[in-house]
């Protein structure tokens, strides 16, 4: 049995006197897309922040590529091959698109400057809109374009794992569709991804494995193919309308046989 790319064990974390995570555990195999779902306050984003290193774990451990990274700073985790598409996209508004991408390649350029040119061209090939607007200030772009930039900025460093936190938050339905295409395209690269998403239908259409959270713990983990709308309703307490939407997303995912690590089933 191969070691998972990311192993999260019994993580507890919080702020001040408040403990938000109470023993979170899950694995993310190489090449898979893991989704973390839950209602507001379930601890999804705090889990992502613990994985990224911006919130310290009070106990438990996080192993990345077999190494214990629990105490490492966010910068060192990025240098080890972790990429981020943070909540709210967090592009640098006063920098141009190209400057944002160059900053995204900070560790890559420090390792080998020659790899930056091809990496930049790779991002521009994948997101032509970024090539067209390379000199535009990121803060003047639309939400969907900023989402492309945030994903491009994470990809340019050639990470092994990308943490994507609430990518559809604040986006219009059209921009969410564009983002879906972007993330589907990223999934085809074979990069491992951990996705936190409030929009369950949108998230389920992307992931291989779903981890459902309630009040700071993972209450269900399993392949999306084995997830039914009743499980969603039980663990997430979602309403009928949302349940129907999530159910249809599940039906769409369950139609073809789910094969781990394969991205061919998804339309490009």
């Amino acid at each position: 049995m191969t070691t998972p790319l990311l192993e999260v064990r019994d993580i507890t974390a919080g702020f001040g006197a408040t403990t938000v995570l109470h023993g979170v555990s899950f694995d993310v195999p190489q090449g898979s897309i893991a989704g973390i779902f839950g209602l507001n306050g379930a601890g999804k984003s705090v889990t992502m922040k613990v994985l990224g290193g911006s919130v310290p774990a009070r106990s438990g451990s996080v192993h990345f590529r077999g190494q214990d990274i629990t105490k490492l700073s966010p910068e060192k985790r990025v240098a080890m091959g972790m990429g981020h598409v943070p909540q709210g996209r967090q592009v640098f508004p006063g920098l141009t698109v190209e400057e944002n991408l160059r900053l995204g390649a900070y560790t890559l350029r420090r390792k080998d400057k020659k790899r930056y040119g091809p990496a930049l061209n790779g991002v521009f090939d994948r997101f032509p809109i970024l090539a067209q607007r390379r000199g535009q200030l990121a803060g003047t772009m639309s939400g969907g374009q900023q989402a492309s930039l945030a994903v491009g900025r994470a990809l340019i460093n050639e990470p092994d794992l990308i943490l994507v936190d609430e990518p559809s938050a604040g986006l219009s339905p059209v921009a969410t569709l564009e983002l879906d295409e972007v993330l589907q395209a990223v999934a085809h690269t074979g990069v491992t991804m951990v996705l936190v998403e409030q929009n369950i239908a949108f998230g389920l259409s992307l992931v291989d494995t779903a981890h459902l959270m309630q009040t700071g713990t993972v209450v269900h983990s399993g392949p999306v193919g084995e997830l039914d709308d009743q499980t969603l309703a039980t663990h997430l307490g979602i309403g009928r309308v949302l349940q129907a939407a999530a159910g249809s997303a599940l039906a769409a995912r369950q139609a073809p046989p789910v094969k781990k690590g394969s991205r061919a089933r998804r339309p490009a």
């Binding site: 990224g52 240098a79 943070p86 967090q90 006063g94 920098l95 900070y106 560790t107």
Partner: peptide, 13 residues
């Protein structure tokens, strides 16, 4: 502009 995001792209803040 965004100190938290700077760390997430690997820049030593």
């Amino acid at each position: 502009q965004d100190p938290a995001a700077v760390r997430l792209v690997g820049v030593p803040l």
